[in-house]
Write a protein that binds this DNA or RNA. Structure first.
Lengths: 206, 206
DNA sequence: TATAAGTTTGCACAACCTGCAAGATTGCTT
DNA sequence: AAGCAATCTTGCAGGTTGTGCAAACTTATA
């Protein structure tokens, strides 16, 4: 096979689209982080990215979408890794391991993600479109968890594990973004998942 | 004392306001449950409630708010109960107990809540405005949990417990609303919290 | 270069949401 | 009962969001 599966060559057109998309997303994040969501119009974002307002809506269905980004691919990979994980390990362990790639990508765009977490914290309406909370995202994970555990998706357990893990990831990300000199995101996620697996025991009062 | 602390007398004006608010909220829920969020305009909701569109916005800041309702009071009571709970019990136990009142109120408006859960499930953007996920709500609970446990609010543990408990409540409510012939909400919440306290052990495949 | 395919843009338009001021309703006082 | 003050409702004007359509433009391919 001739490198099938890998992108053959981005091409000028694709590169341009990526750049425009990134420019819009970054402009939106910076402006909103600075002024607040309501004080930034699509027109201003478009202007900062040097495209027309109409073009903004060719890339994002609404203003919010430019802020949260598109993580459909991340979720797909996460589901794939979870499905491929050895069946012996506990669900929480497998979920934590499957998050590695996502965490890596977040680290790779650390600055943008800090802006994003800041904006999301100040505008909770954006939250469900982030990594966790999205309806389709959750359903996909719930299904693969159910298959892994071997119970019916109605059983409640898969949905509980999924929602709870999402909440754990969220809090870890919030902490990570809050103080930039703190521990790595991976360590914070580890800590949260360990606490989950231990039944959330009361910590030593430090 | 002469019944101080209880509302002296609703008064015609207040009763009318309550009725208008309830009419708008119910009309919004029914219409959106039937047609979908995007296929219902504020004008139609107002018409169904027999008020002008402008009046709608006197009651709700946006269309979404009419669907999720206002639960600030519930959260206040929950925080108060949590703060007053005996300091000996585990956090999860105290949180579960503090949820009793909220669960009771949800049961009292079962039909509306089923509509609401249905609408929220189909429109995840509404999710963070519900009982769990709101920024202020979470912060208030995080603070009282931190005080209870005796750690700094930055410790991560309070935020984790809060977010995770919210997720547990959410999944229990979703299950409860999904099949109306199932167990009581209180039992489902109990089950979820028990699983949390046990460290989410893999269930028997039934 | 010519042609096809995809992208950007402007324009028109519906819906969302806010501020303001006028009119209606309610509560209170005399 | 009448009048005054407070509150609620309503209409209107206007800015912003988001979509459909068709014309211009850019890129890919032959």
């Amino acid at each position: 096979m001739t490198t099938a599966g890998t992108e053959p060559a981005p091409g000028l057109r694709d590169r341009k689209k990526r750049r425009t998309r990134a420019a819009l997303a970054e402009a939106a994040l910076r402006l909103v982080a600075e002024r607040g969501l309501a004080q930034v119009t699509v027109e201003e974002i478009s202007e900062a990215a040097d495209v027309s307002p109409r073009t903004f809506f060719n890339y994002f269905a609404c203003k919010d979408d430019a802020l949260v980004g598109d993580h459909a691919g991340d979720v797909e990979r996460l589901v794939a890794r979870l499905a491929a994980a050895p069946p012996g390990a506990a669900v929480l362990t497998a979920l934590r391991a499957a998050l590695d790639e996502v965490i890596e990508e977040i680290h790779a765009e650390r600055e943008l993600w800090c802006l994003r977490m800041d904006v999301v914290a100040r505008n909770p309406a954006l939250l469900p479109r982030l990594l966790a909370g999205n309806a389709e995202t959750e359903r996909a994970i719930v299904e693969v968890v159910a298959a892994r555990v071997g119970v019916d998706p109605d059983h409640g357990y898969p949905a509980l594990v999924t929602a709870v893990s999402g909440a754990a990831l969220r809090t870890a990300m919030a902490r990570w973004a809050a103080h930039s000199d703190g521990p790595d995101l991976a360590d914070l996620v580890d800590e949260a998942f360990a606490a989950l697996a231990a039944g959330l025991p009361q910590p030593d009062r430090s």
